[in-house]
């Protein structure tokens, strides 16, 4: 198993937000984590990414304990976290946003690594000299994904990558994610655009009140979600969002 999370618990000011979560991801597997707002999904990702201290539990990568390691060290292990909302460094150019991850490398190696990511995200090449803060939200999210990919990760931890994006950009972001999955990158995805996430995921978990309440293969995710006492509610024409069933 690539990533194993065992009985992980995280609290804010004494209140348990993640309460004994156990999940796993195989190499090249895309796993989605669903749940209503406040279920603890983002907190779970932050704890795995080394940004929050856990009260108990373990995080293992290929069987090796990585609990509590900081994001820089996790990057060396091939785990890269892409946070929600905060996508880019606005005053840095697109090129600098990608290059900033590679400060340990020499300038020639940095240039080669950024060029290889430009090959995967060709639209960014034309915008490489533009301050990232001037890009649209969708473009910024693509920069955030490209920035993660520049480290050639084994595992991406993505926290709501389509949050606040238009339907067209949601589509484009998922096209990019599918391409990453196709290249063998494992993904743990927290996402509100459930319809798209179900298309992408191999397997999924449903979280509620800090606990995993269901685990299912992609084909059975919708059923698992319903069984967990939650429902799909249609928002607009295309986007489905999870909300707690009254």
């Amino acid at each position: 198993m690539l990533l194993t999370v065992e009985d992980l618990a995280v609290s804010y000011n004494g209140a348990g937000v993640v309460r004994g979560v156990t999940l796993h991801t195989a190499a090249s597997e895309c796993v989605a984590v669903f749940g209503p707002n406040g279920a603890g999904k983002s907190t779970l990702l932050k704890a795995v990414a080394g940004l929050l201290r856990s009260d108990r539990g373990e995080v293992l990568l290929d069987g090796e304990r990585i609990t509590g390691l900081d994001p820089a060290t996790l990057g060396k292990y091939g785990i890269v976290y892409v946070p929600q909302g905060r996508r880019v460094f606005p005053s840095l150019t697109v090129y600098e946003n990608l290059e900033i991850m590679l400060y340990r490398l020499g300038s020639r190696e940095r240039r080669a690594a950024v060029e290889s990511v430009f090959a995967d995200f060709p639209a960014l090449r034309d915008r490489s000299g533009v301050a990232a803060g001037r890009l649209s939200s969708g473009e910024q999210q693509i920069v955030a994904l490209a920035r993660a990919m520049v480290l050639k990760p084994k595992l991406l931890l993505l926290d709501e990558p389509t949050h606040g994006l238009s339907a067209a950009w949601v589509e484009r972001v998922f096209v990019s994610l599918k391409a990453l999955c196709g290249r063998g990158v494992a993904i743990v995805l927290v996402e509100q655009a459930v319809e798209k996430a179900v298309e992408l995921a191999d397997r999924g978990y449903v979280m509620r009140l800090g606990r995993i309440v269901r685990e299912a293969e992609a084909a059975n995710l919708v059923q698992a979600y319903r069984e967990s006492g939650l429902a799909w509610t249609i928002k607009g024409e295309r986007n489905y969002e999870l909300s707690q069933f009254a």
């Binding site: 820089a72 060290t73 996790l74 990057g75 905060r86 460094f89």
Partner: peptide, 11 residues
Amino acid sequence: DDRELAKAVGI
């Protein structure tokens, strides 16, 4: 620019 993002990406 963004201290929290910097931490998250390993700076």
